[in-house]
Design a binder for these strands. Structure first.
Lengths: 164, 164
DNA sequence: GACAGATAGTTATGATAAATAACTAATTGT
DNA sequence: ACAATTAGTTATTTATCATAACTATCTGTC
């Protein structure tokens, strides 16, 4: 126990012994965590989104808002927020960007002057159509990867998962 | 086509006509987008994570790092980064937090003094064990929701999706 | 009709995750 | 010995999400 007994072995011990090559890292229970898999998958898919929609300049969130407005003209901001799970406070600047890009317009609802109804401009409709067309590529790549049935299963499982 | 022929109809059009109740919002193609479903599902699961691990005070990212270190003591920072898909630059402060919490230690690798090998403290091992136990609850809730086979399918599909 | 309470939108702010660039120190190969 | 890499750090930027406080408007009740 005295310092003397500390062998040189301790010093020249195989310090690299339990070093692992990054190829063989064991994720342990992590690899079974749905949350972990979700995070990695989402990062990959969002990267694919940016790549597929390059040149359009829309974020996933922006596109989702435009699609909802396009399918439901006249919705209020709050309606869109609850439909997409966005906080009203965060929606305001997002929407103003879409307005600044000339893609959407706010219009005070006369029946309730607190509310704004939302519509796309004709440019907005064009851009959504183009974005959806480009987005098809991404979805096709995913289908190629998972198979048609795998893709459908995944969509359904994710849908269930939202209400855990 | 002359201005005269523009009927009053245009003016007193039913301005509230196409208002929709938020219950019946049509997500259109969005509901089939894997990326959209991923985002919503991940938000739900991460909220569940925070709820399940309340009191431990670890983020999903922090726990993932601790688990990897625990299963692979002696990995360098870069190893952990590539294993988990984290940027080295973002890893530094994350790791320093874990060190400050007394859960992990950095140790210069003598064989390559640029590298730091990582290990858990005994406190770190305790905390990981407790965190994993609590995390089981979340995974069980997910399994209850998707079924055992659904859960396995989901994990596999997400895994494939990472390499799209 | 007046007024308390609720709602729609906005503003400001803070926390977190992720990406990029530039830097230091140490190593490698020639 | 020296150029080119590599590991880690620092600083900065951006995007997303959450919370609280504010205004303007509306609703229900007396």
């Amino acid at each position: 126990m005295s310092p003397r007994n500390v062998r040189v072995r301790a010093v020249r011990a195989p310090l690299v012994a339990d070093r692992q090559s990054s190829a063989e890292v064991d994720l342990g229970p992590l690899s079974g965590f749905i949350g972990y898999r979700l995070r990695r998958a989402q990062l990959a898919v969002f990267a694919g989104f940016e790549q597929a929609l390059r040149g359009i300049g829309l974020s996933p969130g922006q596109l989702s808002v435009l699609v909802v407005i396009s399918r439901n003209p006249g919705l209020t901001q709050s309606d869109v927020c609850t439909a997409l799970g966005i906080q009203r406070a965060n929606f305001t600047p997002l929407l103003h960007e879409l307005e600044a890009m000339g893609l959407a317009v706010r219009q005070v609802l006369p029946a309730d002057r607190r509310s704004n109804t939302l519509r796309l401009t004709s440019l907005g409709r064009d851009v959504v159509a183009r974005a959806l067309a480009l987005h098809e590529r991404l979805e096709r790549r995913i289908t190629d990867c998972l198979g048609e049935s795998g893709r459908a299963q995944l969509a359904e499982l994710l849908c269930k998962l939202e209400m855990v």
